[in-house]
Design a protein around this nucleic acid. Structure first.
Lengths: 249, 249
DNA sequence: CTCTCTTAGTGTAAATAGTACGGCAATAAC
DNA sequence: GTTATTGCCGTACTATTTACACTAAGAGAG
């Protein structure tokens, strides 16, 4: 077998797709590159991994430097290692996504020393990003979409107190599909994972909504009993009809 | 930002969890290490990634060298990068799992030049493997378990013609839960993804079963229409009762 | 104070999907 | 022909999902 030392010619990095939710829209935090390569293009925040640093540690470091936030939801998604993905050498990058509550950090000066900005995910996906960051963003967005169906991670994006409508909008933004209001509420409430705070929204120019909180403790108890959070992909009549057609002929 | 060249002190590898299905049991292909470190222990097949080699290419190469198989199902799962995971240096490894039909390769001499052997996954998980390969195996097994619920990948492990009972045993082995025979058949057949070959099993000492084939073409058509394969995790009465208790109390 | 605007909140019937469960049928071996 | 083994089938019950439309509450304008 080849000696390890023969292969010391590559570098690792992490890239972090930081998602936030604001104004009813799913956002991603991007940085404008100030140096070559890809100077002037928007890129995902990331950095090379230090020699004595674990992968997740590196991802958390990037997040902390940029947002000042610690202990946020972070999940590894995929390693990207196309030979030519970095013009300066072989760099394999490991992509993470994290979910932050935008309201949690009021633009600390340090965090925006580099020009960082929230972008609508949909718009970011349409423009050209640096490196293979379009791939990475797409992959991480898809990972979030899948995750949100099977784990209650959406709450990581909302403030601690939220309304059912906000929650629904969040799911609609992530799943990119409209949901029926009554069915959504019924489903969510039937999981018994929301605490009704007996508080009302304030300062809204219309009927105020009730505020809820995610019941993390209960969720952990449920998990221990093998309970599984599930938001099924629902099939429309149209889809069913077209599937019928394939079966018939 | 740090120069890329400062970081040229690490290596990448891939490790491949190769799953097979035989004798009603899920198997994994392991190699006995002939050299230090971890000499004598069983390990996942893997190798360092060559400087000009993509990640998936490397994973396929390892697979090809070991089994002689090409074009098998391969999926990236997770990158493992604990600082001390390799005693000889910093090596970040990217774990893949692949699904092979054991019947496809009749132990080619070259493939077993290194001592490779199929192990029951359950037993492999109980013994100590080299490096962090227990972690990797567990993670990949869980990934397979999740995957099998939402994509019809199980067929990759079966010969082209199989019986419904074989298919059920496969799912039971992966999900590690017994399934009701009639309900399983009903569910699978209702998906219209199996072609009834009008052929019978031969040489079995009991009533022979019908043979089926997975209808890949139709599945791709369904996919294009947004159809989603789904095998739900079913909750037992017991589980439901315990969840009720949490809600009440 | 009343009218308007906006969003919150609610129920039910029909269809679909999931669950639990027992007995006869076909073959090979003896 | 008897036995052992596995294949194959159907129904009643329950739970979940779907589709769908109106009234309620508050803010703001006049």
């Amino acid at each position: 077998m080849n000696e390890v030392s023969n292969f010391f010619k590559s570098a690792f990095s992490i890239d972090n797709v930081i998602f936030g939710f604001d104004e009813g829209d799913l956002k991603v935090l991007l940085i404008k590159r100030g140096t070559e390569p890809y100077k002037g293009l928007w890129a995902l925040p990331g950095d090379l991994i230090y020699p004595n640093e674990g992968l997740e540690t590196a991802a958390n470091r990037v997040l902390l430097e940029l947002t000042g936030l610690q202990k946020v939801y972070l999940e590894q998604v995929h390693a990207f290692g196309a030979v030519d993905r970095h013009p300066l050498g072989r760099v394999i990058t490991i992509a993470y996504f994290s979910l932050v509550k935008i309201s949690d950090f009021v633009v600390t000066p340090s965090s925006f020393a580099q020009k960082a900005k929230w972008h609508s995910v949909a718009k970011a996906q349409e423009q050209t990003l640096a490196f293979d960051h379009n791939d990475i963003l797409d992959t991480c967005f898809d990972a979030l979409k899948s995750k949100v169906r099977v784990r209650p991670v959406g709450f990581e994006l909302l403030p601690p107190k939220f309304t059912l409508t906000e929650l629904q909008h969040l799911y609609e933004a992530i799943l990119r599909t409209p949901l029926d209001k009554r069915n959504f509420r019924k489903k969510i409430l039937s999981m018994h994972l929301l605490i009704d705070l007996d508080e009302m929204q304030e300062g809204v120019p219309h009927r105020p909504a009730k505020l809820y909180q995610f019941d993390k403790k209960r969720y952990h108890k449920f998990e221990a009993e093998g309970f599984s959070f599930e938001l099924k992909e629902s099939k429309s009549k149209d889809q069913k009809r077209r599937i019928e057609e394939i079966i018939e002929g």
